[in-house]
Design a protein around this nucleic acid. Structure first.
Lengths: 221, 221, 221, 221
DNA sequence: AATGAATGAGCGTTCATTCAT
DNA sequence: TATGAATGAACGCTCATTCAT
């Protein structure tokens, strides 16, 4: 599993000791969230499993929301930017880069962390604005990446075309979490699904026109 | 919002009074789940908002899991079978039927109930086997419907081809919940997304072959 | 295990059906008390395990105390009078009769029913007058029997001498419940304990005098 | 009534304040157990009568069993070791020591604490292994003491003879709890009972032989 | 004789939070 | 930085009892 590193944003992470503590706390919290769910994520439990007292925990995080917010941001951080290397790899055509990225994403869905983390995040986002925001930031980056890839593959696309395609594509692979995910029924079918996704998304990117995005006529689909 | 009607399965729903009570309880529970999230769904709250005492609530449901299980099944019930009429409409071509169903599904994602209910269900399914099971049953029906539509549109497809396509398609539109859903950033873009989805899915169904599902060559995608 | 039969005292036991019901209730209650302890003896549990509803149970017993009182009396009833046959057996000497009775009592201590029932009764008697009373009645009968046996063995004893000896003897074997009882450490030593008890008690009965009951001089013990 | 002092074993009893609290809690719990019985011994009640909140109580004892276990051990502790001084008193013959100890034990049975505590312990031991264990430990010590006294009085006895006599004697006086105990019918007869017990036990110790423990012939008893 | 429905109090336990030291 | 102690509210659940039908 990824090891969470600190965001600079936390005030108590100034000293080396403090930084280390916060790291332990966040990793512990992440483990609980993944292994037992948000309902089991209590301050007491985090403290005990981190080897500190509740009192000390609330020195670092004055409220549970404070901690959870930091946790979400830290976990999400780990999901971002990994695609830069692939996109910078000149030995691959844009389509190969794209295929590689989609494959990576779909493979990642089958990890326990991803399968368990995201539904918790989505549920939380229903009622906690800070979770909404963390989610938006993250998916914003994903969309930016997808838009860039769409442009490389089909430079004729307008910004808004690329944008709506990015929304469609990211929604689409996120949705596989519940079906291909860890312990889920179709988790051994990732190769086929990856293949379908790539073919389907490439077709979309290459054939998108204003009419076939905004109008609808099954006869010409 | 849909009104939950009883499953026959509940033992206490034999008399008219009992049936009415169970109905009130389930509707109340559903409202809390949708409006405030699973974390707020406590026996006390359900009782109070149903106008009964905790004691009486647990006369109907001996445990919280018992209630939640019934709730999930009842809510899920409301999501199923509505497509039968569309599929039976001879005045539409299979492609038109398909387009209509996909449109309906994607439109439904923008309702508060759907946007809020499903992420809670998915999160719950991570740790509660009964939620997993309820989920599997439901998506099984959805896949059956999609497989039937795929066959109508392209009778040449094998069962396993239709199956993997159904998994891909249902994953794909489920994933839009977090982006097109109630209060989410792209909720006003359902028409375009519907359009893209329909075009993309129809292309997949019509062009699927064993090679382009199991093999991968971006050059020919 | 003994089957509890009704005392006539219960008002609802007039009809045949009522009598049968009360019998089932009491036997169920006894089983719960023995197998799971007084703490588990709830009206709900008795009703469910008797195959009736709580409502109906409280038609027969208007309160829990009412039921428990009946239960104690019924169980205790089963412990009384069995010695009459032995005492009436002319083929045995009084000492042989006595030995046989003591053996029977000590053997009985090792049954699960006896081991579990009496400590519950004694504990209950600490705070529930009706349990005290049931206990007193029962031990009164036991003492009467022991006094009669003492007289047969040593006719020279006065009433008060026989009485205090009876108290000592009955206390003495009751105390073995916790050591020889079902699942207890010394339960396989009943033969030796019986033997010691008989020898010890007979010696007491035969040698009791006013002085060695009321005075004390270890030198002459 | 004895004041319960702490066992070192309790983790929260490190600081002075914690030690004091635990002491108050245990004394309160003991009082409730004695005065109102195990059924009345609830966490809420203990907390209220200790002048603290339930939350704080469960800071000290994470579960009721945890508390009750500590309580039993603490109470039992108070019943042990007091005989050492008597046994070390060289001015008394072994028989006088023995007589003194038996007298003390039987006198103690009439205290409210002893009368009420032990039946609760015995009943609890029927279904709670930890209570069984606490009981076994305690009576083990009592038996050791009785075996030592038996040896002093009759050095010819074998270990197993002393052991079975110790079981018989300790069972015997424990059984008097329900008859001589606080508020019980024969509580004013402790002097005579003590006298009988001492005479009877001494006779047993002095006359025990392998035959009259293991064989049985009422004619020679 | 029996059921089904309901109450209100209490149970053991866990929670986020606060604060003096 | 860290601990230990505490609060007060809430949790899921069970209880004896009542009563209309």
């Amino acid at each position: 599993m990824r090891t969470l590193t600190l965001q600079g944003r936390h005030e108590k992470a100034s000293s080396r000791k403090g930084r280390k503590r916060v790291e332990v706390i966040l990793n512990t919290a992440r483990d609980i969230l993944i292994d037992e769910g948000y309902a089991a994520l209590s301050m007491r439990r985090i403290a005990k499993m981190s080897g500190i007292t509740v009192g000390n925990l609330s020195y670092y995080y004055t409220s549970k929301q404070d901690l959870v917010q930091d946790l979400l941001e830290a976990v999400i951080q780990g999901y971002m930017g990994w695609w830069d290397d692939i996109m910078a790899d000149d030995s691959l055509t844009p389509e190969q880069q794209f295929a590689k990225i989609i494959s990576f994403i779909i493979d990642d869905l089958t990890t326990k962390e991803t399968t368990h983390f995201f539904p918790e995040l989505w549920a939380l986002a229903n009622h906690e604005p800070f979770a909404q925001e963390a989610m938006n930031t993250m998916y914003g980056h994903v969309r930016d990446m997808l838009m860039e890839m769409a442009q490389r593959i089909n430079p004729a696309l307008s910004v808004s075309e690329r944008e709506i395609l990015a929304v469609f594509m990211s929604s689409s692979f996120e949705g596989h979490t519940m079906f291909l995910g860890y312990g889920r029924r179709w988790s051994d079918r990732t190769p086929q699904i990856s293949h379908i996704a790539i073919r389907s998304f490439l077709h979309l990117i290459k054939t998108a026109t204003p009419e076939n995005i905004n109008g609808f006529d099954p006869a010409i689909a």
